[in-house]
Nucleic acid binder design. Structure first.
Lengths: 220, 220
DNA sequence: CGGGAGCGTTTTGTATACAATAACCAGCGC
DNA sequence: GCGCTGGTTATTGTATACAAAACGCTCCCG
């Protein structure tokens, strides 16, 4: 995180989730350079990453805007994530070492610790949650898969920040993780895939509940 | 294709597939700037795209190398592509209009025309093949899915250039396309998914046959 | 003879100036 | 009043110079 483009990336990302900018609003590279305190060159690099993650979009004439995620966009993102991450869980179950399983148990203990407090520490939960899913991707040993998931997950992480989680939602996640770990320990790819599927699909519905109802002409 | 960074992208890509550079070889941005005839700024932009497509990779210290695709890398790529493109076919089957189906029939006629000659025109076949698959992605109406597939498909297109195809392989592809069109016309998502699955899996084996046998215990 | 510190060279990263292109606005003809 | 056209400003794209970092080499010391 020391290079200017990384700092710019983090700063712009923070700026987007700070709520100071609305979806669909135009931004300019100069603006962002001022905000981040670096020149346009690293800003352009950062912007490219954010475009990749679909947090920013460009018009047909290359003007820059804050992306506007519709409910359908979010559903599609969750669907893709589910498809890819189920596959990752399956591969991980075939490859995971005892050491890696122990690692994941430790991460999930941390995750539970973040929940079981007077007031659950959501930021800490999200960090641990992310570490958990990253460990699975790591164990899946598929660089392209990891790359794709990383891009998919970035945007929701931002969108999610404003959300509120019930303690029960968080506990259910922790239980899912326990079962995933069991599936990994048993080296059972089908089990891992199935648990991951329900874990993510539930996450989508939890998420969607706060975003709003489905559009009526929905498919899939 | 008029901006310098686009020209740089195309030029570097052409350079990579020209065979003048070996997998694993180091490249420098200056070199590429000379080759492409533009300055390093657009070259860096082009290089980022090529890194995305995993045709170029950077070392831990940011030095630039030609990617070295192992047999396992290729298999993983095909697996991911199958997963995503089956999903695309399913969605496309739900959404495709009569007009789009007619469009695809036209593309497949062009594809067959490229085959049925004294010597099949492989470049023309590949263009039509690409147009066919692009039309499916278009009909699937999922920007993220399209984006991911575009990235996945880029690399193989390059790797594939050196390959030789038997006329029978090409004809089988055309038949698969016919069946896909039938599935779309029938608006049958399951059928479309199944045909796409076998189409791509066969493509992988056809490809793998020329690359070499599977490694029994591969690591990095 | 081997290992490591120092230093010149190579390569990547950043800032800035300038060029090209797109949006905006005003004035004109109809 | 409406739409077009020309020029003006805003914004992105490119080139270049310089800064920072990494590599490789040599030379010194053990």
């Amino acid at each position: 995180m020391s290079r200017a483009s990384d700092r710019a990336y983090a700063a712009i990302r923070a700026h987007l989730l700070s709520g100071q900018v609305k979806a669909g609003e135009q931004l300019t590279e100069d603006q962002l350079a001022q905000i981040t305190g670096v020149s346009r060159t690293p800003v352009r690099e950062a912007v490219r990453r954010l475009e990749d993650e679909l947090l920013l979009v460009r018009s047909d004439t290359k003007r820059l805007f804050v992306a506007d995620w519709s409910r359908d966009d979010i559903e599609e993102m969750f669907t893709l994530r589910q498809m890819l991450e189920c596959h990752a869980a399956e591969r991980a179950a075939r490859r995971m070492t005892r050491g890696q399983v122990a690692e994941m148990e430790a991460v999930n203990r941390e995750l539970k610790a973040a929940i079981e407090q007077p007031a659950p520490d959501v930021a800490r939960f999200l960090d641990a949650n992310r570490a958990f899913h990253d460990a699975i991707i790591e164990a899946a040993a598929s660089p392209r898969l990891g790359q794709m998931l990383a891009r998919l997950v970035e945007a929701p992480v931002v969108l999610r920040t404003a959300r509120t989680y019930s303690t029960e939602d968080l506990r259910q996640s922790a239980r899912d993780h326990d079962e995933l770990i069991a599936a990994f320990a048993a080296r059972d790819p089908d089990w891992a895939r199935a648990v991951m599927g329900s874990h993510l699909r539930r996450a989508f519905h939890t998420f969607a509940r706060t975003v709003g109802p489905a559009t009526d002409a929905e498919d899939a």
